[in-house]
Amino acid sequence: MRLNGRVTHRDRAPAPSLLYVVKQLELVTRAHLDAIVRESGVTALQYTALTVLERREGMTSADLARHSFVRAQSAADLVGGLERRGLIRRDPDPANRRRRLISLTDEGRALLRRQAEPVAALEAHMLKDLDPDQRESFAEALQLCRGAMSDLPLDAD
């Protein structure tokens, strides 16, 4: 901003980092997603875990943690809550009886179907100012960034 011909602090402020912008987008998206799925009695994190299981049936808790980018303890709590709600089930792995494989129940699939339209509308709103080529480039860039971050180990607490 210019005041009496002088440059103020706002004119010199650097652009926010991409990490900051990504985090802000994640926070606002999560808040809206929480509002959408609240009626179903799940959180945005639980909903996201259900969508991961929809794409990758028969995962272990460790697999789910990795694909949901949460710590193992968080995944264990998440899985327990979803199982108590009847949205998932854990069955013994036929190849290793000590492992339990997580799958969606019919109720979990029904929840995802009920939320599909409002979640798609949220995504469409987020992308409304991008043309089709920008949307495709944005999706590709996000996938590349996610892939790059997935091979970076998280420090243990």
Rank of each mutant, 00 (worst) to 15 (best):
A35D: 11
V37P: 06
E39F: 01
S40V: 08
S40N: 01
V42F: 00
A44V: 10
L45G: 11
Y47A: 05
L50G: 06
L50K: 12
L53F: 00
L53T: 07
E57K: 04
T60P: 01
S61L: 07
R66H: 12
F69V: 11
F69S: 12
R71L: 15
A76T: 11
A76P: 03
V79I: 10
V79M: 09
G80E: 01
G81N: 13
R84D: 14
R85C: 00
R85G: 07
L87M: 00
R89E: 15
R89F: 02
R90S: 04
D91E: 14
P92N: 03
D93I: 01
R100T: 02
I102C: 03
I102M: 04
S103A: 07
D106P: 03
G108I: 10
R109H: 04
A110V: 02
A110C: 00
L112K: 08
R113V: 13
R113Y: 05
R114L: 09
A116G: 05
E117F: 01
E117A: 09
E117H: 06
A120L: 09
A121Y: 11
L122T: 14
L122C: 06
L122A: 08
E123V: 13
E123Q: 12
A124S: 15
H125G: 15
M126E: 12
D129T: 06
D129R: 15
D131Q: 07
P132R: 11
D133G: 09
Q134S: 11
R135A: 00
R135I: 05
E136P: 01
E136V: 06
E136D: 08
F138N: 13
E140F: 02
A141T: 15
A141Q: 13
A141Y: 12
Q143W: 15
